[in-house]
């Protein structure tokens, strides 16, 4: 099956933040004010109401010079996603275009995904229920799956004036990443592709100008062992056991009622009879 990916070539990014605004515009996300952090960066990291944030890192080069390291940060859409594994409601699934989706109807806001995301991306956001109560649920980049289904590109991709963000079939994107890397190496000797295998590769992957740690990215992000144990071993076993138990209990209950009817009659248990009418 064809799978898709978003390639972010941060070596050509100028840090204009058009991707941030386009995301807010398409997804109707509200303004989120945060305290001034002392730099040029607007928000600290992606949140439930700001799905992508342009990171601006001040970096000293090897020869003592100064350069900006810009990075479009949003959900990485891991092929082997920790959030999908830990979600107790099964609200997180893989979309047909390679995205990791959170079903907003099913999410109960337990924040397991928030604590288990290796990239610290997904967060809870407030919403108002039909009854007017304020509740929380996990929100993050959807890879604009609604746009993809209509044959459009994600809004951040569409708007990027420098083609730093590109979306397409994964094989093509991997090839393009290699080409971009070749070009980047002329200016950035440490340039590399960031597509960490610890999470099965990511459907949003980078061409970085330097080591991931320089950007504040985990070098080898992994799905937490507890998440693997929970999803791949404990949960299927638990489900099977639950099924067996439920069957056992219900069958037992029904057969008990059916075949012990006589005794109830002897005891004068007319109530049971009317219930099962």
């Amino acid at each position: 099956m064809t799978t898709y990916s978003k390639l972010v070539d941060v070596t050509v990014c100028t840090g204009c933040r058009a991707c941030m605004v386009a995301c807010k515009n398409w997804n109707d996300l509200p303004v989120e004010t945060q305290a001034y952090s002392g730099g040029y960066q607007s928000h600290e990291k992606p949140t439930g109401k700001t799905w992508n944030v342009l990171q601006m890192k001040e970096h000293e080069t090897a020869n003592g010079g100064f350069e900006w390291l810009y990075r479009h940060s949003a959900c990485y859409h891991c092929a082997d996603a920790a959030c999908e594994k830990v979600c107790p409601e099964g609200a997180i699934t893989y979309g047909e275009f390679g995205s990791v989706d959170i079903d907003q109807e099913a999410c109960v806001g337990c924040s397991y995904c928030v604590y288990n995301c290796p990239f610290d991306i997904v967060e809870l956001a407030d919403y108002v229920t039909e009854d007017g109560d304020v509740r929380q649920r996990a929100q993050k980049c959807t890879l604009c799956e609604d746009r993809l289904q209509e044959g459009l590109q994600p809004s951040c991709v569409d708007t990027c004036p420098l083609d730093a963000i590109v979306f397409g079939e994964r094989e093509e994107m991997l090839k393009l990443a290699e080409e971009r890397l070749e070009k980047a190496k002329q200016f950035f000797p440490n340039a590399q592709i960031y597509n960490p295998p610890g999470v099965g590769g990511t459907k949003m992957f980078y061409v970085l100008a330097d080591k991931p740690s320089v950007y504040g990215l985990p070098e080898n992000p992994e799905v937490p062992t507890s998440a693997v144990l929970w999803k791949d071993i404990a949960q299927p076993a638990g489900k099977a056991l639950l099924g067996v138990t439920m069957m056992g209990v219900l069958t037992g209950y029904v057969t008990n009622k059916l075949f012990n009817k006589g005794e109830h009659h002897e005891e004068g248990g007319e109530v049971d009879e009317s219930k099962h009418g």
């Binding site: 204009c16 933040r17 058009a18 386009a22 569409d158 708007t159 004036p161």
Partner: peptide, 9 residues
């Protein structure tokens, strides 16, 4: 098809 952040807003 592209836009800067200001035009996007």
């Amino acid at each position: 098809g592209t836009l800067c952040p200001k035009g996007n807003g």
